[in-house]
Computed example of a mutant assay.
Amino acid sequence: MEINKLRTFVDLAKTLSFSETAENLYISQSTISKQIKGLEKELGQKLFERNNKNVTLSDYGKLILPNAKKIVLLSDWISKETSEFKNNSGQIRLGIIPTFANYDIFKQTMNYQKLRPDINLALQEIETNQLVNTLKQKQVDVAFIRTLMPEKLDFEKIIIAQESFTVCLNREHTLANRRKIELADLKDENFIMLAKNSLLYEPVINLCQKAGFEPKISFVSDRMSSIFQMVKSNQGVAILMYPQTKNSELSFVSLEPTSTNTLLFIRNKENHSKIENDFWNYSKQFEMPNRNN
């Protein structure tokens, strides 16, 4: 039984709202539904009753909720104790998004390791939709994430940069040489999309709907390399928040309208070890200026 499924059950039992739990756990509503269904299948019992969009706990759900809360609390306690042990041993666990190495902050982070060889900076690559929960559970000490709504994150923050959606196209595409592309001009294109459980899937769908069309999705993947390969093969276009890497077969063009994405370090609002504070203070020098303007 996965602890994340139990955590989702406990939170949903409290909110009785898929949207609120999605916001609390920083995952998509479809992921919550999948986790609850998976847990119900594993237990062989319904946990919730759903009628006309109303969600209520089933009798079985009420029965197991107290013990589910205990298990989640115990898991959090173990993670906290592990975190404190590792911090005292000179290790910082840094959770990062899969594209971390493509940003300048990666080089600056690696430079910190050179400056402090006595500290083991352990990088853990984790999907964006899992990073916040991993940090909440104290399985990492600091996380580098991207988000569309940084103001909703209840953590200490160091905002590093901002980026916007761009269109990724094959170099031979008729729109590849434009300086900017109107989203409505892509209504007849096939769309190559990141997976539904990514934090970018729904924003892309919403942008297209606001532009007056439903995107024709021809391929979905949770791997950026697969997305690029499909675009290279001229199978469609992709709307991504991704650094504009040099590639002879791809073109990245600004999109209008777009959404702004924030890249930042986050950590829990708690007492931290000396070495964790040392890394945090080092990272502050790369904070984006005038971020409140």
Score class of each variant (00 low, 15 high):
116 R>I: 01
153 L>V: 05
60 Y>N: 10
127 E>R: 13
90 G>C: 11
207 L>E: 06
119 I>C: 11
161 A>H: 03
247 N>R: 02
188 D>E: 14
257 P>Q: 08
186 L>M: 02
105 I>T: 01
2 E>G: 10
182 E>W: 00
71 I>P: 04
135 L>M: 07
122 A>R: 14
130 Q>D: 15
43 L>G: 09
251 S>T: 01
135 L>V: 01
211 A>L: 00
222 D>Y: 04
71 I>K: 12
214 E>M: 12
178 R>W: 00
239 I>N: 01
88 N>Q: 14
144 F>S: 02
98 P>T: 06
238 A>C: 04
236 G>H: 03
202 E>A: 13
33 S>T: 07
134 T>R: 12
177 N>M: 06
156 E>I: 03
236 G>V: 00
179 R>V: 08
132 V>M: 13
40 E>R: 06
124 Q>T: 09
254 S>A: 14
18 F>W: 08
205 I>W: 07
268 N>Y: 05
29 Q>M: 15
164 S>C: 12
160 I>T: 03
206 N>S: 11
23 E>I: 11
198 S>C: 09
17 S>N: 08
26 Y>C: 05
240 L>M: 11
108 Q>P: 10
26 Y>K: 06
146 R>S: 13
15 T>F: 14
23 E>W: 06
106 F>E: 12
2 E>S: 14
87 N>A: 07
91 Q>E: 13
101 A>D: 12
25 L>I: 01
282 Y>A: 04
145 I>F: 06
237 V>R: 00
210 K>F: 14
216 K>W: 04
203 P>C: 13
135 L>E: 06
150 P>V: 13
32 I>S: 03
70 K>V: 05
11 D>F: 05
224 M>S: 12
189 E>P: 00
106 F>L: 07
105 I>K: 00
152 K>W: 07
187 K>A: 11
96 I>P: 00
58 S>A: 05
180 K>A: 09
114 K>F: 08
106 F>R: 09
193 M>Y: 10
9 F>T: 04
113 Q>I: 03
62 K>N: 15
121 L>C: 02
280 W>V: 02
195 A>N: 11
112 Y>R: 00
202 E>H: 15
6 L>K: 11
231 V>K: 03
259 S>R: 14
123 L>M: 08
86 K>G: 06
42 E>C: 06
70 K>L: 06
70 K>N: 09
177 N>E: 09
71 I>G: 07
253 V>Y: 05
262 T>S: 14
50 R>Q: 14
129 N>V: 09
